[in-house]
Amino acid sequence: MSDDELYPIGDAARRSGLSVSAVRFYADIGLIEPTALNEAGHRMYDVHAIARLELVRTLRELGTDLDEIRRLLEGGTTLHDLLATHLEVVERQERTLRARRAVLRALIKQGGTTAQAALMHKLVSMTDEERERIIDDFWTGVGESLDVPEGFVDRLRAMRPILPADPSAAQLEAWIELADLVSDAGFRDAVRAYLRDAYSAPEARTLATAPFQDFIHGSGASLMEELLAAYRAGEPPRSARAQQAVVRFMEAATALSGTPLTPEVRDRMADGYRRIPAILRELAEEEPAAAYDDTHGRYLSLVARINGTAVEEDHDAIPYAWIAEAMRHRFDR
């Protein structure tokens, strides 16, 4: 194609990917006028006009309206700004469609009614402030008349969903399910009942105290990970590395109650870890385990899915017997 060569409307249409009627329409509304008319009065287009026609076709396929295209061609905006603005529109539409897909999937799964459809649409359309409010209201309700150590419910409240700005369909579906649950008085009462039963005994109340919770979720977790790293590295439980790690863990754990780490205490802790697999098997067959899975466990599982932190717990992957042997062994440091 030569810069000086002129092409009839049929060629211009074919080269730009438009129909002849579309090229004629754009000329009639003054968007892309022909470069010249030939002796017979037919419209002729040079390569620059054809390039603009091709640009118009591309932008129209992207959904850009004619007024925006006119502003671009007349210099009222740049192509970069126009495309950036249009990208925002497309991304907003994509988020809307993803939310609708999540609602439809949830409705199909639940065999939902018209009322449920309206509720689910409201749930996915909530602002961050509205989402925060219903979670706070839920935990305020759970904490009413719940006899647990001070600050325990506030710690549970801190484990909350944070729906990202661009959530996946799975995250939206998890949010719909969670928001529906925390709005249900029956679920709130079931969570309160589980927490009351789980932390009513004196020894269980100790697990809900701030020092113990700080240990479980803070220093204790890092010390246990250090111990597990020795196991994954193939260290025998009596090796110097394993012993240093296990002693640090036991010293920190016993310090919570002010108990010295004596050989007898080590034996008791070792025996406790040795029996954990059997205890877990027993719990799996009892109602309390199901109560956790249906109440607080369900809440935590959905929060993890929403936050993108869901991890499958595999109790069989934890080397309880290895840890127990490491705890029982005496190592001269």
Rank of each mutant, 00 (worst) to 15 (best):
F215I: 00
V148N: 10
S21Y: 07
M159D: 11
H80Q: 15
V303C: 12
Y292Q: 06
T295F: 12
H315V: 05
D128R: 10
L178S: 04
D271R: 07
F25T: 03
G308Y: 04
E33I: 06
V90N: 01
D180C: 08
A12V: 00
Y45T: 02
P319L: 12
E313S: 11
T85Y: 12
A240Q: 11
A49F: 00
V247N: 02
E33K: 10
T58D: 14
L178P: 05
A40V: 04
E144K: 00
Y292A: 08
E203N: 12
Y26K: 14
T262V: 03
G234P: 01
K109I: 13
H121L: 07
L207E: 13
A289N: 07
T127K: 06
E177Y: 13
G30T: 15
S222L: 10
D184C: 15
R57K: 04
E150A: 02
S200H: 10
R157W: 10
A230H: 03
I108R: 15
V124S: 05
L82M: 12
D11T: 13
Y273L: 09
T77G: 10
I162K: 07
E325Y: 08
S125R: 08
K122G: 09
A252Q: 11
P161Q: 02
G258C: 08
D189Y: 02
S239T: 03
I69K: 01
A291Q: 15
E177R: 14
R133T: 01
F249W: 14
D271N: 09
V23C: 00
Y320D: 10
S301Y: 14
S168L: 10
I135Y: 05
Q110M: 01
R131Y: 02
I32D: 01
W175N: 02
Y231M: 11
V246P: 03
L87C: 08
V124K: 05
F25A: 07
D316S: 03
D154H: 09
H48R: 07
G258W: 07
A270P: 02
E61M: 13
S301F: 15
S257F: 00
A170R: 10
R188T: 05
K109Y: 13
A22G: 02
L302K: 05
Q171I: 01
R52K: 13
D332W: 02
F212C: 07
L256V: 04
G112Y: 08
S2H: 14
V153L: 08
H315A: 08
D67V: 15
V142H: 00
K122F: 08
S222R: 13
A240C: 08
L107D: 09
E251C: 01
A115T: 00
I176F: 08
G297I: 12
H121V: 05
A242L: 06
S257V: 04
D214T: 11
R275M: 15
D4N: 15
P236V: 05
V247K: 06
A221L: 14
D46M: 02
G220Q: 03
L172E: 01
R196K: 13
Q93L: 06
K109M: 13
R131V: 00
A230P: 01
E173W: 01
R98M: 09
I69T: 02
G297R: 09
L123A: 03
E173P: 00
A317E: 08
Y292K: 09
A198Y: 07
G41T: 09
G112E: 06
R196Q: 12
P164F: 13
A253S: 04
Q243H: 11
Y199V: 11
D184Y: 14
E235W: 05
F215Q: 02
L83D: 06
D81V: 11
A99H: 07
E251D: 03
L62D: 02
